[in-house]
Amino acid sequence: MSAPHVPSRAPAAAVLPERGPEPVKITLSVNGDEHTFDAEPRVSLLDALRERLSMTGAKKGCDQGTCGACTVWVDGRRVLACLTLAIACEGHEVTTIEGLAQGDELHAVQSAFIEQDAFQCGYCTPGQIMSAVALLKEGHDGDDAEIAEWMSGNICRCAAYPHIRAAIRTVRDRSRDPSHGQT
């Protein structure tokens, strides 16, 4: 039974340990590998990845949640690394664009982006791809309108949108019919 109508008995509260504001040891699991580094608690996941772990795949477009260039996955769900604190990701699994390929073999969505010419300057592309793979997993790939709506959190300054949608459609169609479009 949920708590709603149970009057609270307010058990004695534990005093919470406090970390920071000076740099503290933070341990993150990124693409399956554990990394420990020193950073202040205010450091975003995006800055930790780029500045501490030298993973510069996730990009900083706006740093305020409005562009999607920083899209990564936390526990398999696409999120914005710029509005996520690194320290809050301890105990969770972070996946970045660097973790998508299997060795030298690109992920199907990465290959489709190349094939379909789905980028120009490439700045938004890691975020687009992390979002696109998640979208396909979420099943929001029914038609172009649905793809556009569920990709709307990723802005492309070069307006490569039609090609990005084409890349997503390609992967969707191949996974529905493995013989389709395979060269």
Binding site: P11, A13, A14, V15, G20, P21, P41, R42, L85, I87
Partner: peptide
């Protein structure tokens, strides 16, 4: 952005008491 410190709570009463 100013420096901040960080605590993580796993019980409602602790979170409420801390804030």
């Amino acid at each position: 952005m100013r420096p901040i410190s960080y605590s993580r709570a796993d019980a409602v009463a602790d979170a409420v008491a801390a804030v």
